[in-house]
Design a protein around this nucleic acid. Structure first.
Lengths: 345, 345
DNA sequence: TTGAAAGCGCTACCAA
DNA sequence: TTGGTAGCGCTTTCAA
C-alpha cells in the first residue's frame, strides 16, 4: 500500500487529484472532460463536483501533446490599429467561440518579420490552424506552414488556388460604388486619390471607380499618393488648392478614410465648401470616419462577417480534411452615405 | 537491436530525428536548443545543420509540459480598438522580445466575461505570466490566478498592494495639464466634460483640472456624460449651443478625444469659431485626434512605455520571485498642443 | 461503462 | 562535454 503524499501547498490540481478525490480512474476523468456522454450520470456528477471543489483546470500543453493536435487557432493581423482588422478579429473570435475554440491574436504591425514571428510562434504552440490577414507581400512563410500540415486560411487575401482558402472583399465593386454615388450626386469632374498602386486593393478600387466613370461617359483622373495616410491627404489637398478653382474636381474617390480626412481638412481650411462644391468619399469605414467634423461618406467592408467566414472555412478544412474543397469567398462592401458627399436638401 | 522505422511522409520532424541525423543523443540536441554554451562547437554545428536540414521546430507543448513552466506571456487588453491599449501592447511585445519571450494577445472588448475567458485561456496554456489592462470592475479573477501561482501585472491599473505590481499614468496630472494650458490661453470660463464619474480615470482627470482651476482662482464647471463617445460629445455640444452665447464656457477640458471631437463638430456647425471663441482639449491622443479637420490638443499617455514597464516588472517577478518587491509605477502623461486650443498668432 | 497502461516530445538530472 | 532515462499531465487504446 502506497502512502499518499499530500500535495505541496501551491501546486495546481491535476487530473490525478480529481480522480483520487472522486474515487475513479484517470481515464474516466478525461472522459468527463472530453466526452461526457460516455460516462454514467452518477459517475459524471461525482467527477464534476471533484473538479469544482479542487478548481481543476486542464493543462493545455499536456492535452495538446497527448492528443497530437491543438485546439487553439491563431489569427495574425497585418494591422490591428486599423479597425477593419479588429473587426475581422472579432468575427474570427465569435465564430471560434461557437466551436469552443480559442483564438490567439497576433499583430504583425505591417512588418513582415513580425508576421513570420507570429506564424512560427503559433506553429510551435501547435495551433490547429491559422487565419492570416497577410502583409501585402511574399507568402512563402504561410506556404511553408501548409507544407508542415498546418491549415492556413487567408482573410483580406485570395486563397492560394488549390492550396488554401481565402476571404476577400470585392474591392473593384467598392470603387465602383463610390464613383457611382458621386455620379448620382451630379459630379462630373472625378478624381481618384490613392497609392501606391502596387497595393492590390488600391489598384482594384481604382479600376472599379474607373469602370463606373467610363460607363457614365465621364473621365476620371488619377492622383497617386505614396501612402494612405492623413498626411498624404493634406498634401493632395494643397495641390488641389494650388489649381485654378475652375479646374478642380467636383468629386473625389479617396482610397482610404485617412486620405479623405486629410483632403477634407486641407480643403475646408482653403475655403472650399464641402459638400456644396465638392463631394468626397473615403474607404474603410474606420471608426474615426463617423467622428470627424464632417462625417465621411465611405465604403465599409464587412469585417466581422469576413472573419467569421474565414473561421468557418478553417473549421471545415480541419474537420473534413478529405472532402474539403478550397475556395475564395468574395464578400461585397457597402456604401455608407454621410455628409461629405451629399448636398443638404 | 531495434529496427529504425522510417518517418511517415508528413510527420513534422521531432528532436529524436535531429539526434539520429546528427549522430548525437537527445539531451545534446536539447542543449543545443536551450543552452548552446554547454555544447562543444563542433557538436553544436553538426546538430544545427541537422536542425536546419530537417526544418525542425521545437514543440512548445512538450517543452512547456516537461519544463513545468511556459515561456509565453499573455497580454489581455480591455479595448484594442483604443489605440492607447494597442500602444501598450506594442510596448509589452517590444520588451518581451528583448527577453526572447513571445506575447499572446487577448482583446476583452470591454466585456468582463471575455476578460475572464482570456485569463483562463492563458492559465491553461501555462503562460509564464500575464499583463492585464483590466476592465474597470471586480478583479476576483486576477486574484484567483495569482493564488494559483500565475504572476499578474496590471497596466493602466494600480498594483494590488502587496499582491501584484501595476503601471498607471498620473491621471490627475493629465487633467491639471489640460486645465493649466487653457488658463495660459487666457480662458477663464472652464468646463470639464466627462463621465460617468465612477470611471476612476475620469474622476481623477476631473480632480486634476479642478485643482488647477482652484489654484488659479477660477471656477470649473462639471458636465457629466453617460459615456466617453463622439455621440455623447455631440449631445454636449447642442446643450452648449442652447445656452446664451455670453454664458458659454471659453475653455473645455474633455475627458476623451472622442468626446472632444463630438463637441467640436457640433459647435463648429453651430457657428462657434474654434479656437477663437473657445479652446478645447481632448484626452488619450487617439490616432484620429491628429486626423480631424481641427487637430485636437490632447493629453497623451505613454502607452508604449507603460507596456514596456509592465513587462519589465513581470520579468523581474518571474526571474527573482524571492527578492521581488511589488510596486506601482506612475508615469506622467504629456500635453500635446494642436490647433483646437491655440488662437493663431 | 470503467480501469490500466502506453506513449505524446521534450527537459532535467545524473552518470559516464 | 555527452548519453541515458525518468517523468511532465494528459489522451487513447485495450481489457476487464
Amino acid at each position: 500500500m502506497s502512502v499518499s503524499i499530500p500535495p505541496s501547498p501551491h501546486r495546481p490540481p491535476v487530473m490525478a487529484d480529481v480522480a483520487r478525490l472522486a474515487g475513479v480512474s484517470l481515464g474516466t476523468v478525461s472522459n468527463v472532460v472530453n466526452t461526457p456522454d460516455r460516462v454514467r450520470p452518477a459517475t459524471r456528477l461525482k467527477v464534476e463536483s471533484a473538479i469544482a471543489s479542487l478548481g481543476f483546470v486542464p493543462n493545455t500543453s499536456a492535452r495538446t501533446l497527448a492528443a497530437g493536435r491543438g485546439t487553439l487557432v491563431g489569427f495574425v493581423a497585418v494591422d490591428l490599429g486599423n479597425s477593419y482588422f479588429l473587426d475581422i478579429a472579432r468575427g474570427v473570435e465569435r465564430e471560434a467561440d461557437l466551436a469552443q475554440q480559442s483564438v490567439l491574436l497576433g499583430n504583425s504591425d505591417v512588418d513582415l518579420d513580425k508576421q513570420t514571428g507570429y506564424l512560427n510562434l503559433f506553429e510551435q504552440a501547435q495551433a490547429a490552424g491559422i487565419v492570416l490577414a497577410p502583409f501585402d507581400g511574399p507568402m512563402d512563410e504561410a506556404r511553408r506552414l501548409r507544407r508542415r500540415g498546418l491549415r492556413v486560411v487567408y482573410v483580406n487575401w485570395p486563397g492560394d488556388g488549390d492550396e488554401s482558402c481565402g476571404v476577400v472583399v470585392d474591392e473593384e465593386l467598392g470603387g465602383r460604388l463610390a464613383a457611382e454615388h458621386l455620379l448620382e450626386q451630379g459630379r462630373r469632374e472625378l478624381v481618384f486619390v490613392g497609392g501606391p498602386l502596387d497595393l492590390t486593393a488600391v489598384r482594384h478600387r481604382f479600376e472599379g471607380a474607373s469602370a463606373a466613370a467610363r460607363d457614365a461617359g465621364v473621365s476620371l483622373r488619377l492622383m497617386t499618393t505614396s501612402a494612405l495616410t492623413v498626411r498624404a491627404g493634406l498634401t493632395v489637398g494643397s495641390e488641389l488648392l494650388a489649381q485654378e478653382a475652375a479646374g478642380r474636381p467636383d468629386g473625389i474617390v479617396a482610397a482610404s478614410d485617412a486620405l479623405a480626412s486629410g483632403i477634407v481638412q486641407s480643403l475646408l481650411l482653403g475655403g472650399v465648401d464641402i459638400p456644396r462644391d465638392l463631394s468626397i468619399t473615403g474607404y474603410d469605414d474606420n471608426h474615426f470616419a463617423q467622428g470627424t467634423t464632417l462625417p465621411l461618406t465611405t465604403v465599409g467592408q464587412p469585417g466581422v462577417e469576413m472573419g467569421g467566414q474565414a473561421m468557418r472555412l478553417l473549421r471545415d478544412e480541419l474537420d473534413h480534411p478529405s472532402t474539403h474543397r478550397h475556395e475564395t469567398v468574395v464578400l461585397p462592401p457597402r456604401l455608407i452615405v454621410r455628409s461629405s458627399s451629399v448636398r443638404a436638401g
